[in-house]
Design a protein around this nucleic acid. Structure first.
Length: 420
RNA sequence: GUGGGCGUAGCUCAGCUGGUAGAGCACCCGGUUGUGGUCCGGGAUGUCGCGGGUUCGAGCCCCGUCGUUCACCCCA
Protein backbone atom coordinates (compact mmCIF):
# COMPACT_ATOMS: atom_id res chain seq x y z
CA UNK A 1 0.00 0.00 0.00
CA UNK A 2 1.26 3.43 -0.92
CA UNK A 3 2.03 5.91 1.77
CA UNK A 4 0.06 8.67 0.15
CA UNK A 5 -3.63 8.89 -0.46
CA UNK A 6 -5.72 11.55 -2.10
CA UNK A 7 -7.15 14.09 0.33
CA UNK A 8 -10.38 13.00 1.96
CA UNK A 9 -13.53 13.22 -0.07
CA UNK A 10 -12.20 14.34 -3.45
CA UNK A 11 -13.43 12.87 -6.70
CA UNK A 12 -10.80 11.46 -9.05
CA UNK A 13 -11.18 10.10 -12.55
CA UNK A 14 -8.86 7.77 -14.39
CA UNK A 15 -9.39 5.36 -17.28
CA UNK A 16 -11.85 4.02 -18.16
CA UNK A 17 -14.07 6.30 -16.06
CA UNK A 18 -12.20 9.45 -16.99
CA UNK A 19 -13.37 9.09 -20.59
CA UNK A 20 -16.97 8.96 -19.45
CA UNK A 21 -16.37 11.97 -17.23
CA UNK A 22 -14.83 13.87 -20.12
CA UNK A 23 -17.69 12.86 -22.40
CA UNK A 24 -20.31 14.16 -19.96
CA UNK A 25 -18.46 17.41 -19.37
CA UNK A 26 -17.97 18.03 -23.08
CA UNK A 27 -21.65 17.39 -23.80
CA UNK A 28 -22.64 19.93 -21.16
CA UNK A 29 -20.19 22.45 -22.56
CA UNK A 30 -21.35 21.76 -26.09
CA UNK A 31 -24.91 22.56 -25.15
CA UNK A 32 -23.79 25.93 -23.79
CA UNK A 33 -21.73 26.70 -26.89
CA UNK A 34 -24.68 25.88 -29.15
CA UNK A 35 -26.58 28.65 -27.40
CA UNK A 36 -23.81 31.19 -27.89
CA UNK A 37 -22.08 31.07 -24.51
CA UNK A 38 -18.31 31.70 -24.45
CA UNK A 39 -15.70 30.31 -22.13
CA UNK A 40 -14.57 32.22 -19.08
CA UNK A 41 -11.58 30.68 -17.34
CA UNK A 42 -11.10 31.91 -13.80
CA UNK A 43 -8.84 31.31 -10.80
CA UNK A 44 -9.90 28.56 -8.41
CA UNK A 45 -9.29 30.90 -5.48
CA UNK A 46 -10.60 34.37 -4.89
CA UNK A 47 -10.49 37.06 -2.26
CA UNK A 48 -12.58 35.55 0.54
CA UNK A 49 -14.89 38.53 0.47
CA UNK A 50 -16.06 37.69 -3.05
CA UNK A 51 -17.88 34.76 -1.51
CA UNK A 52 -18.89 36.16 1.86
CA UNK A 53 -20.51 39.12 0.12
CA UNK A 54 -21.61 37.32 -3.00
CA UNK A 55 -22.95 34.05 -1.71
CA UNK A 56 -24.06 35.41 1.64
CA UNK A 57 -22.68 35.14 5.14
CA UNK A 58 -25.69 33.32 6.53
CA UNK A 59 -25.34 30.39 4.12
CA UNK A 60 -23.84 27.07 5.18
CA UNK A 61 -21.61 27.19 2.14
CA UNK A 62 -19.90 30.32 3.41
CA UNK A 63 -20.03 29.90 7.16
CA UNK A 64 -18.94 26.30 7.47
CA UNK A 65 -17.84 24.81 4.17
CA UNK A 66 -15.16 27.08 2.74
CA UNK A 67 -11.48 26.29 2.36
CA UNK A 68 -10.09 29.60 3.50
CA UNK A 69 -6.40 30.33 3.98
CA UNK A 70 -4.00 33.19 4.27
CA UNK A 71 -1.32 33.64 1.63
CA UNK A 72 2.20 34.84 2.34
CA UNK A 73 1.15 38.42 1.93
CA UNK A 74 -1.49 38.10 4.63
CA UNK A 75 -4.43 38.13 2.18
CA UNK A 76 -7.42 35.96 2.97
CA UNK A 77 -8.15 33.68 0.03
CA UNK A 78 -10.78 31.00 -0.46
CA UNK A 79 -11.00 28.06 -2.83
CA UNK A 80 -14.12 28.71 -4.88
CA UNK A 81 -17.17 26.89 -3.46
CA UNK A 82 -19.33 27.86 -6.44
CA UNK A 83 -18.95 29.66 -9.74
CA UNK A 84 -21.29 32.60 -9.99
CA UNK A 85 -19.66 34.98 -7.52
CA UNK A 86 -16.27 34.65 -9.22
CA UNK A 87 -17.77 35.23 -12.66
CA UNK A 88 -19.47 38.39 -11.42
CA UNK A 89 -16.20 39.60 -9.91
CA UNK A 90 -14.49 39.13 -13.28
CA UNK A 91 -17.34 40.76 -15.21
CA UNK A 92 -17.15 43.82 -12.97
CA UNK A 93 -13.35 43.96 -12.85
CA UNK A 94 -12.94 43.70 -16.63
CA UNK A 95 -16.03 45.74 -17.52
CA UNK A 96 -17.48 42.88 -19.53
CA UNK A 97 -20.95 44.34 -19.07
CA UNK A 98 -20.03 47.55 -20.91
CA UNK A 99 -20.50 46.02 -24.34
CA UNK A 100 -23.53 44.49 -25.93
CA UNK A 101 -25.85 42.69 -23.57
CA UNK A 102 -26.52 40.03 -22.60
CA UNK A 103 -23.07 38.76 -21.74
CA UNK A 104 -23.20 35.00 -22.10
CA UNK A 105 -20.47 32.99 -20.43
CA UNK A 106 -19.81 29.38 -19.53
CA UNK A 107 -17.25 27.87 -17.18
CA UNK A 108 -16.07 24.40 -16.31
CA UNK A 109 -13.87 23.29 -13.48
CA UNK A 110 -13.32 22.16 -9.94
CA UNK A 111 -15.06 23.57 -6.89
CA UNK A 112 -14.38 23.01 -3.23
CA UNK A 113 -16.50 22.61 -0.15
CA UNK A 114 -15.35 21.20 3.17
CA UNK A 115 -18.32 18.94 3.77
CA UNK A 116 -18.59 15.42 5.09
CA UNK A 117 -18.27 13.23 1.98
CA UNK A 118 -21.23 11.17 0.88
CA UNK A 119 -22.62 9.54 -2.24
CA UNK A 120 -22.48 12.32 -4.83
CA UNK A 121 -20.98 14.82 -2.44
CA UNK A 122 -17.29 15.55 -2.68
CA UNK A 123 -14.89 18.10 -1.25
CA UNK A 124 -13.54 18.72 -4.72
CA UNK A 125 -16.20 18.37 -7.36
CA UNK A 126 -16.82 19.51 -10.91
CA UNK A 127 -19.33 21.88 -12.38
CA UNK A 128 -20.18 23.24 -15.76
CA UNK A 129 -22.11 26.45 -15.45
CA UNK A 130 -23.43 29.30 -17.54
CA UNK A 131 -24.30 32.91 -16.77
CA UNK A 132 -26.41 35.28 -18.86
CA UNK A 133 -25.95 38.82 -17.66
CA UNK A 134 -27.68 42.03 -18.59
CA UNK A 135 -31.37 41.48 -19.17
CA UNK A 136 -34.19 40.01 -17.16
CA UNK A 137 -36.36 38.88 -20.04
CA UNK A 138 -38.27 35.69 -19.27
CA UNK A 139 -36.86 34.39 -22.57
CA UNK A 140 -33.38 34.41 -21.05
CA UNK A 141 -34.58 32.51 -17.99
CA UNK A 142 -36.02 29.88 -20.26
CA UNK A 143 -32.95 29.77 -22.49
CA UNK A 144 -30.77 29.05 -19.48
CA UNK A 145 -33.07 26.26 -18.35
CA UNK A 146 -33.26 24.92 -21.90
CA UNK A 147 -29.48 24.75 -22.20
CA UNK A 148 -29.37 22.42 -19.19
CA UNK A 149 -32.37 20.44 -20.32
CA UNK A 150 -31.07 19.92 -23.85
CA UNK A 151 -27.70 18.80 -22.48
CA UNK A 152 -29.43 16.16 -20.38
CA UNK A 153 -31.52 15.07 -23.34
CA UNK A 154 -28.47 14.88 -25.59
CA UNK A 155 -26.86 12.59 -23.03
CA UNK A 156 -29.90 10.36 -23.15
CA UNK A 157 -30.97 10.98 -19.58
CA UNK A 158 -34.62 10.39 -18.87
CA UNK A 159 -35.20 10.02 -15.18
CA UNK A 160 -34.71 13.62 -14.17
CA UNK A 161 -37.17 16.27 -13.17
CA UNK A 162 -37.17 20.04 -13.33
CA UNK A 163 -38.46 21.91 -10.30
CA UNK A 164 -39.08 25.61 -10.62
CA UNK A 165 -40.40 28.41 -8.53
CA UNK A 166 -40.06 32.14 -8.27
CA UNK A 167 -38.54 33.91 -5.30
CA UNK A 168 -39.87 37.23 -6.55
CA UNK A 169 -38.22 40.56 -5.96
CA UNK A 170 -36.93 41.77 -2.60
CA UNK A 171 -40.19 43.49 -1.65
CA UNK A 172 -42.18 40.31 -2.26
CA UNK A 173 -39.69 38.33 -0.23
CA UNK A 174 -39.71 40.77 2.69
CA UNK A 175 -43.47 40.72 3.09
CA UNK A 176 -43.52 36.93 2.84
CA UNK A 177 -40.73 36.54 5.32
CA UNK A 178 -42.54 38.55 7.93
CA UNK A 179 -45.55 36.28 7.63
CA UNK A 180 -43.47 33.12 7.54
CA UNK A 181 -41.53 34.03 10.66
CA UNK A 182 -44.81 34.76 12.41
CA UNK A 183 -46.11 31.34 11.35
CA UNK A 184 -42.97 29.48 12.42
CA UNK A 185 -42.90 31.14 15.82
CA UNK A 186 -46.30 29.59 16.47
CA UNK A 187 -44.79 26.10 16.00
CA UNK A 188 -43.18 24.03 18.72
CA UNK A 189 -39.71 23.20 17.44
CA UNK A 190 -36.53 21.79 18.91
CA UNK A 191 -33.58 24.07 19.54
CA UNK A 192 -31.59 23.11 16.45
CA UNK A 193 -34.52 23.61 14.11
CA UNK A 194 -35.36 26.95 15.69
CA UNK A 195 -31.79 28.05 15.12
CA UNK A 196 -31.97 27.02 11.46
CA UNK A 197 -35.26 28.83 11.04
CA UNK A 198 -33.76 31.94 12.50
CA UNK A 199 -30.92 31.89 9.97
CA UNK A 200 -33.22 31.21 7.03
CA UNK A 201 -36.89 30.44 7.67
CA UNK A 202 -37.28 29.01 4.16
CA UNK A 203 -35.07 26.12 5.24
CA UNK A 204 -37.94 24.48 7.09
CA UNK A 205 -39.69 23.91 3.78
CA UNK A 206 -37.26 21.19 2.75
CA UNK A 207 -36.86 19.48 6.12
CA UNK A 208 -37.14 15.73 5.61
CA UNK A 209 -38.85 14.89 8.90
CA UNK A 210 -42.51 14.01 8.63
CA UNK A 211 -43.60 16.10 11.62
CA UNK A 212 -41.93 19.19 10.21
CA UNK A 213 -43.48 18.58 6.79
CA UNK A 214 -46.85 18.35 8.51
CA UNK A 215 -46.24 21.48 10.51
CA UNK A 216 -45.13 23.38 7.42
CA UNK A 217 -47.97 22.19 5.20
CA UNK A 218 -50.02 25.26 6.05
CA UNK A 219 -47.14 27.73 6.06
CA UNK A 220 -47.48 30.79 3.83
CA UNK A 221 -45.85 30.26 0.43
CA UNK A 222 -43.65 32.85 -1.20
CA UNK A 223 -45.36 32.26 -4.54
CA UNK A 224 -48.53 33.74 -3.06
CA UNK A 225 -46.73 36.94 -2.13
CA UNK A 226 -45.33 37.84 -5.54
CA UNK A 227 -46.16 41.33 -6.74
CA UNK A 228 -47.74 41.77 -10.18
CA UNK A 229 -44.49 42.26 -12.01
CA UNK A 230 -42.85 39.13 -10.55
CA UNK A 231 -46.01 37.16 -11.11
CA UNK A 232 -46.23 38.19 -14.77
CA UNK A 233 -42.58 37.31 -15.31
CA UNK A 234 -43.06 33.87 -13.80
CA UNK A 235 -46.21 33.26 -15.84
CA UNK A 236 -44.28 34.05 -19.00
CA UNK A 237 -41.47 31.69 -18.01
CA UNK A 238 -43.96 28.87 -17.50
CA UNK A 239 -45.64 29.58 -20.80
CA UNK A 240 -42.35 29.55 -22.72
CA UNK A 241 -41.23 26.32 -21.05
CA UNK A 242 -44.46 24.68 -22.11
CA UNK A 243 -44.02 25.91 -25.66
CA UNK A 244 -40.54 24.39 -25.76
CA UNK A 245 -41.90 21.11 -24.48
CA UNK A 246 -39.82 21.22 -21.32
CA UNK A 247 -41.67 19.47 -18.52
CA UNK A 248 -41.53 21.10 -15.12
CA UNK A 249 -43.02 20.90 -11.67
CA UNK A 250 -43.80 24.04 -9.75
CA UNK A 251 -42.32 23.54 -6.34
CA UNK A 252 -43.02 26.53 -4.09
CA UNK A 253 -41.23 24.75 -1.24
CA UNK A 254 -37.94 24.49 -3.09
CA UNK A 255 -35.09 26.10 -1.23
CA UNK A 256 -31.74 27.16 -2.61
CA UNK A 257 -28.73 27.42 -0.36
CA UNK A 258 -27.22 30.56 -1.79
CA UNK A 259 -28.49 33.97 -0.74
CA UNK A 260 -28.20 35.74 -4.07
CA UNK A 261 -31.15 34.10 -5.80
CA UNK A 262 -34.16 36.19 -6.82
CA UNK A 263 -37.05 35.57 -9.18
CA UNK A 264 -36.96 32.42 -11.30
CA UNK A 265 -35.20 29.62 -9.47
CA UNK A 266 -34.86 26.00 -10.56
CA UNK A 267 -33.34 22.67 -9.78
CA UNK A 268 -32.91 19.41 -11.68
CA UNK A 269 -33.29 16.21 -9.66
CA UNK A 270 -32.44 12.70 -10.74
CA UNK A 271 -34.51 9.77 -9.55
CA UNK A 272 -31.72 7.20 -9.25
CA UNK A 273 -29.25 9.11 -7.12
CA UNK A 274 -30.12 8.72 -3.45
CA UNK A 275 -29.91 11.56 -0.98
CA UNK A 276 -27.79 13.90 -3.11
CA UNK A 277 -30.12 13.88 -6.07
CA UNK A 278 -29.62 17.39 -7.43
CA UNK A 279 -27.77 17.24 -10.75
CA UNK A 280 -27.98 20.94 -11.39
CA UNK A 281 -29.63 24.11 -10.29
CA UNK A 282 -29.64 27.82 -10.61
CA UNK A 283 -31.69 30.93 -10.85
CA UNK A 284 -31.83 34.64 -11.26
CA UNK A 285 -29.63 36.87 -9.12
CA UNK A 286 -30.65 40.42 -9.83
CA UNK A 287 -28.87 42.12 -6.94
CA UNK A 288 -25.59 40.25 -7.05
CA UNK A 289 -23.58 42.45 -9.41
CA UNK A 290 -24.57 45.48 -7.41
CA UNK A 291 -23.66 43.96 -4.06
CA UNK A 292 -20.20 43.11 -5.40
CA UNK A 293 -19.63 46.71 -6.41
CA UNK A 294 -20.74 46.57 -10.02
CA UNK A 295 -23.55 48.27 -11.85
CA UNK A 296 -27.10 47.20 -11.15
CA UNK A 297 -27.60 44.71 -13.96
CA UNK A 298 -29.49 41.46 -13.65
CA UNK A 299 -28.32 37.97 -14.36
CA UNK A 300 -29.31 34.33 -14.37
CA UNK A 301 -27.31 31.14 -14.53
CA UNK A 302 -26.93 27.56 -13.42
CA UNK A 303 -24.35 25.12 -12.14
CA UNK A 304 -24.46 21.50 -13.25
CA UNK A 305 -22.76 18.79 -11.23
CA UNK A 306 -20.59 16.79 -13.60
CA UNK A 307 -19.87 14.08 -11.00
CA UNK A 308 -23.52 13.54 -10.28
CA UNK A 309 -24.57 13.64 -13.92
CA UNK A 310 -22.00 10.93 -14.58
CA UNK A 311 -23.51 8.86 -11.78
CA UNK A 312 -26.96 9.43 -13.21
CA UNK A 313 -25.83 8.40 -16.69
CA UNK A 314 -24.23 5.26 -15.29
CA UNK A 315 -27.40 4.49 -13.35
CA UNK A 316 -29.48 4.89 -16.50
CA UNK A 317 -26.85 3.05 -18.52
CA UNK A 318 -27.09 5.59 -21.33
CA UNK A 319 -23.39 6.18 -22.04
CA UNK A 320 -22.00 5.06 -25.40
CA UNK A 321 -19.43 2.28 -25.06
CA UNK A 322 -17.16 3.52 -27.82
CA UNK A 323 -16.02 6.83 -26.36
CA UNK A 324 -12.58 7.63 -27.81
CA UNK A 325 -12.49 4.23 -29.46
CA UNK A 326 -9.27 3.35 -31.27
CA UNK A 327 -9.88 2.89 -34.94
CA UNK A 328 -6.85 0.70 -35.49
CA UNK A 329 -4.48 -1.39 -33.40
CA UNK A 330 -1.34 -2.76 -35.01
CA UNK A 331 0.35 -5.94 -33.82
CA UNK A 332 3.90 -6.07 -35.22
CA UNK A 333 5.53 -9.47 -35.02
CA UNK A 334 9.08 -8.78 -36.19
CA UNK A 335 11.61 -6.01 -35.63
CA UNK A 336 11.05 -4.66 -39.15
CA UNK A 337 7.32 -4.88 -38.56
CA UNK A 338 7.67 -2.83 -35.43
CA UNK A 339 9.48 -0.04 -37.24
CA UNK A 340 6.98 -0.11 -40.10
CA UNK A 341 4.06 -0.07 -37.67
CA UNK A 342 5.55 2.84 -35.79
CA UNK A 343 5.97 4.91 -38.92
CA UNK A 344 2.53 3.99 -40.17
CA UNK A 345 0.94 5.09 -36.90
CA UNK A 346 2.55 8.47 -37.20
CA UNK A 347 1.12 8.94 -40.66
CA UNK A 348 -2.35 7.73 -39.68
CA UNK A 349 -2.41 9.98 -36.62
CA UNK A 350 -1.42 12.87 -38.83
CA UNK A 351 -4.60 12.15 -40.76
CA UNK A 352 -6.75 12.17 -37.64
CA UNK A 353 -7.05 8.40 -37.21
CA UNK A 354 -6.99 7.32 -33.57
CA UNK A 355 -4.62 4.35 -33.47
CA UNK A 356 -2.09 2.48 -31.37
CA UNK A 357 0.19 -0.56 -31.50
CA UNK A 358 1.56 -3.33 -29.32
CA UNK A 359 4.86 -2.44 -27.70
CA UNK A 360 7.36 -4.89 -26.31
CA UNK A 361 7.94 -8.28 -27.87
CA UNK A 362 4.55 -9.84 -27.65
CA UNK A 363 4.42 -12.27 -30.51
CA UNK A 364 1.39 -12.86 -32.67
CA UNK A 365 -0.98 -14.16 -30.04
CA UNK A 366 -0.01 -11.52 -27.52
CA UNK A 367 -0.27 -8.80 -30.13
CA UNK A 368 -3.76 -9.83 -31.19
CA UNK A 369 -4.77 -10.13 -27.57
CA UNK A 370 -3.58 -6.59 -27.01
CA UNK A 371 -5.58 -5.51 -30.06
CA UNK A 372 -8.64 -7.15 -28.55
CA UNK A 373 -8.13 -5.54 -25.16
CA UNK A 374 -7.61 -2.13 -26.71
CA UNK A 375 -11.17 -2.19 -27.97
CA UNK A 376 -9.99 -1.04 -31.40
CA UNK A 377 -12.31 -1.26 -34.37
CA UNK A 378 -9.68 -2.88 -36.61
CA UNK A 379 -6.61 -5.00 -35.94
CA UNK A 380 -3.61 -5.30 -38.25
CA UNK A 381 -0.65 -7.67 -38.14
CA UNK A 382 2.61 -6.48 -39.66
CA UNK A 383 5.48 -8.93 -40.15
CA UNK A 384 8.18 -9.43 -42.78
CA UNK A 385 5.65 -10.88 -45.27
CA UNK A 386 3.58 -7.71 -45.28
CA UNK A 387 6.63 -5.56 -45.68
CA UNK A 388 8.00 -7.50 -48.60
CA UNK A 389 4.65 -7.91 -50.39
CA UNK A 390 3.34 -4.46 -49.49
CA UNK A 391 -0.01 -6.06 -48.74
CA UNK A 392 -1.86 -6.68 -45.49
CA UNK A 393 -5.11 -7.86 -44.02
CA UNK A 394 -7.18 -5.47 -42.00
CA UNK A 395 -9.33 -7.33 -39.50
CA UNK A 396 -12.65 -6.01 -38.26
CA UNK A 397 -12.36 -7.10 -34.64
CA UNK A 398 -16.05 -7.34 -33.83
CA UNK A 399 -16.79 -9.89 -36.57
CA UNK A 400 -13.41 -11.31 -37.49
CA UNK A 401 -13.99 -10.32 -41.11
CA UNK A 402 -10.79 -9.43 -42.99
CA UNK A 403 -10.21 -6.89 -45.75
CA UNK A 404 -7.23 -6.88 -48.07
CA UNK A 405 -5.35 -3.64 -48.38
CA UNK A 406 -1.98 -2.37 -49.38
CA UNK A 407 0.31 -1.47 -46.54
CA UNK A 408 -0.06 2.24 -47.09
CA UNK A 409 -1.70 4.86 -44.91
CA UNK A 410 -3.86 6.15 -47.74
CA UNK A 411 -5.38 2.74 -48.48
CA UNK A 412 -5.92 1.94 -44.81
CA UNK A 413 -7.61 5.28 -44.27
CA UNK A 414 -10.01 4.53 -47.11
CA UNK A 415 -11.13 1.34 -45.42
CA UNK A 416 -11.17 2.69 -41.86
CA UNK A 417 -12.74 5.98 -42.85
CA UNK A 418 -15.67 4.26 -44.57
CA UNK A 419 -16.56 2.22 -41.50
CA UNK A 420 -18.27 5.08 -39.76
C1' G B 1 -20.39 18.92 13.01
C1' U B 2 -23.69 14.11 14.46
C1' G B 3 -24.87 8.83 13.75
C1' G B 4 -24.55 3.64 11.44
C1' G B 5 -21.85 0.00 8.08
C1' C B 6 -17.11 -1.47 6.13
C1' G B 7 -11.25 -1.72 5.54
C1' U B 8 -8.17 -9.21 3.56
C1' A B 9 -4.41 -10.10 -3.81
C1' G B 10 -4.95 -5.10 -9.21
C1' C B 11 -10.84 -5.68 -8.69
C1' U B 12 -15.24 -8.10 -6.14
C1' C B 13 -15.28 -10.67 -1.90
C1' A B 14 -15.00 -15.59 1.45
C1' G B 15 -12.36 -16.76 5.90
C1' C B 16 -16.82 -20.99 11.34
C1' U B 17 -16.98 -20.52 18.73
C1' G B 18 -9.22 -16.99 18.07
C1' G B 19 -4.80 -22.10 15.84
C1' U B 20 -0.03 -17.28 11.56
C1' A B 21 -4.79 -16.75 4.25
C1' G B 22 -8.44 -18.47 0.02
C1' A B 23 -12.04 -18.08 -4.42
C1' G B 24 -13.74 -15.74 -8.81
C1' C B 25 -12.44 -12.06 -12.23
C1' A B 26 -8.21 -9.51 -14.23
C1' C B 27 -2.85 -10.21 -15.40
C1' C B 28 1.51 -13.18 -17.51
C1' C B 29 3.21 -17.86 -20.06
C1' G B 30 1.99 -22.23 -22.77
C1' G B 31 -1.43 -25.83 -25.59
C1' U B 32 -1.70 -23.49 -31.38
C1' U B 33 6.64 -21.22 -34.12
C1' G B 34 1.16 -15.76 -39.04
C1' U B 35 -4.35 -13.77 -36.33
C1' G B 36 -7.91 -11.95 -30.55
C1' G B 37 -12.59 -13.32 -27.79
C1' U B 38 -14.20 -19.76 -26.03
C1' C B 39 -11.74 -24.03 -23.90
C1' C B 40 -7.54 -26.57 -21.29
C1' G B 41 -2.80 -26.42 -18.48
C1' G B 42 0.69 -23.57 -15.72
C1' G B 43 2.46 -18.96 -13.11
C1' A B 44 3.11 -14.31 -10.25
C1' U B 45 0.63 -11.32 -6.46
C1' G B 46 -0.68 -9.96 0.28
C1' U B 47 3.51 -5.96 6.51
C1' C B 48 -5.23 -9.04 6.46
C1' G B 49 -5.54 -0.04 6.67
C1' C B 50 -2.21 1.76 10.77
C1' G B 51 -0.86 1.84 16.19
C1' G B 52 -1.53 -0.29 20.81
C1' G B 53 -3.85 -4.09 24.17
C1' U B 54 -5.78 -9.16 25.75
C1' U B 55 -3.80 -14.25 24.71
C1' C B 56 0.72 -19.66 24.55
C1' G B 57 -1.37 -17.89 19.83
C1' A B 58 -5.19 -12.32 16.68
C1' G B 59 -7.54 -11.42 9.82
C1' C B 60 -11.13 -12.72 13.82
C1' C B 61 -11.73 -10.07 20.57
C1' C B 62 -10.84 -4.82 23.01
C1' C B 63 -9.14 0.45 22.61
C1' G B 64 -7.40 4.27 19.57
C1' U B 65 -6.49 6.24 14.81
C1' C B 66 -6.84 6.96 9.58
C1' G B 67 -9.57 5.88 5.35
C1' U B 68 -14.08 4.59 3.05
C1' U B 69 -19.30 4.28 2.64
C1' C B 70 -24.46 5.55 3.76
C1' A B 71 -27.71 8.87 6.22
C1' C B 72 -28.65 13.64 8.98
C1' C B 73 -27.28 18.55 7.75
C1' C B 74 -26.24 21.00 3.23
C1' C B 75 -25.92 21.11 -1.94
C1' A B 76 -23.68 20.16 -7.67
Amino acid sequence: MSKFQAPKGVSEYFPPNSEQFEFIRDQLINSAKLAGYSLIELPVFEDTEVFTRGVGESTDVVCKEMYTFEDRGGRSLTLRPEGTAGVMRAVIEHNLDRGQLPVKLFYSGAFFRAERPQAGRYRQFYQVGIEAIGYNDPEIDVEVIAVADSAFKALGLKQYKLNITSLGDSKSRDSHRTELVKYISSLKLDEETTARAKLNPLRLFDDKREEIKQAMSKAPLLLDYLNNESKAHFEEVKKLLTELGIAYTINPRMVRGLDYYTGTTFEFDHALLGAQSGIGGGGRYDGLMNSLGGSDVSGIGFGLGVDRILMAALAEDCLPNDINQLKLFIAPITEKGKTAAFNLLSELRGNGITCDMAYGDRGLKGGMKAADKSGALYGLVIGDDEISSGKCELKLMSSGEVFSSTLTASDLIKRIGSSN
